[in-house]
Amino acid sequence: MARQQRRGGVRRQAAKLIACVTLVCLLSGCQIIGAGLVAVAGVVGFAGYAVYKTGEAVVTGVGKAGSAVATGATAAVSVIFFNGDFKTRYQGDVQTVWSASRRAFERALLSEISGSFDALSGELTARTREATEVRLRLKTLDAQSTEASIRVGVTGDMRMSETIHNLILQELSAPRQPNGITSSGQKAMP
């Protein structure tokens, strides 16, 4: 009985000691404890990762889903270049984007332009003057947007892909006249 009481007393003393040392550490600015707290806070959001940060300006915060809208983020065009593929999305269905892309290929003076599309996907291939293959793949995302992947050559070329991408954007934004001629002077393809 006396032993149990002694054990209880030691535990209480130990708890007080830990609380005291922690308080002293925090008040004195001990940064091991401080960093530990940041790490613990980080682990809550990112299992297995330690988080270090300065300022709050980098992120809008953890657990604030939908904050992109709340902070007034502007519209953006997203481009991913990965493993030689230049991926982006365009406004418009597959047919609209495919037709604009074909006009863009013609404006780029590419040769051997060929391809096809349906309501779900499309493809266009062509060759540069140096016989490098240019391949465009389209996939419908919804009624108003289409995912596109541009690849130039075997390993991919970001600069040339970007040139094709810019031409497609121009064709998509060019006002169309009733006779099928775009403002860039190209005859619209069916």
């Binding site: 005291c20 040392v21 002293v24 550490c25 004195s28 600015g29 001990c30 940064q31 091991i32 401080g34 960093a35 270090y52 940060k53 300065t54």
Partner: peptide, 17 residues
Amino acid sequence: GLAVCLPGCPAAPQPLG
């Protein structure tokens, strides 16, 4: 504990900058 912590821990990570 006080001797270690009051002057600031020497091995503590510094703030990023």
